[in-house]
Amino acid sequence: MQGNISQMLPVITEATGNCGSFVLKLLFLTSFFSGVIQMGEDAGLMQKISSFLQPLLKRIFETNNPKILKKISINISANLLGIGNAATPSGLAAMEVLDEENNQSPHPSDDMCRFVLFNTCSIQLIPTTIMGLRAMAGSKNPAVIVLPVIMVSFFSLMTGLLICNLLLRLNKKRKPLC
């Protein structure tokens, strides 16, 4: 329609070529930061943060089950530190226990909604990969985004939780929406 169908193959070869350099960039950057984070994890940093978080999380979640709160707090501290490969297993484990508490109903419990919201909001404190990409793109100050990112993450999570709680409460008064 735009008359540039003949350019399809050149566009594909250009994109595949770019892919090589991009993957290489990301490959070593990510392995480096994963290595650093693993050092912190092995030093017990995650357990520290997690035990600090538990009393706070007790106020956000309805459940009183210490097993669930522990799993949730491990997941959240892994997210804060940016340990993707520790966050997902602990998150899934927490979801499984929440599912038991929900009597395996087909409708999500309130705590499930809140917990998933914590995970769909990125709460990573220091966005290492993005800072690395910025540095490689020639940024004069790759770290300048740290503070705005923390503030945006915090306020968006709080607003999200607030809206979530509000809707859940409204939902209980009427017949269930979904």
Binding site: L92, M95, L98, H107, P108, M112, L177
Partner: peptide
């Protein structure tokens, strides 16, 4: 993936 490990079918709200 988070609701994938549960029996929850209705994930519209989250």
């Amino acid at each position: 993936i988070y609701f994938g490990v549960t029996r929850v079918k209705n994930t519209k709200f989250p």
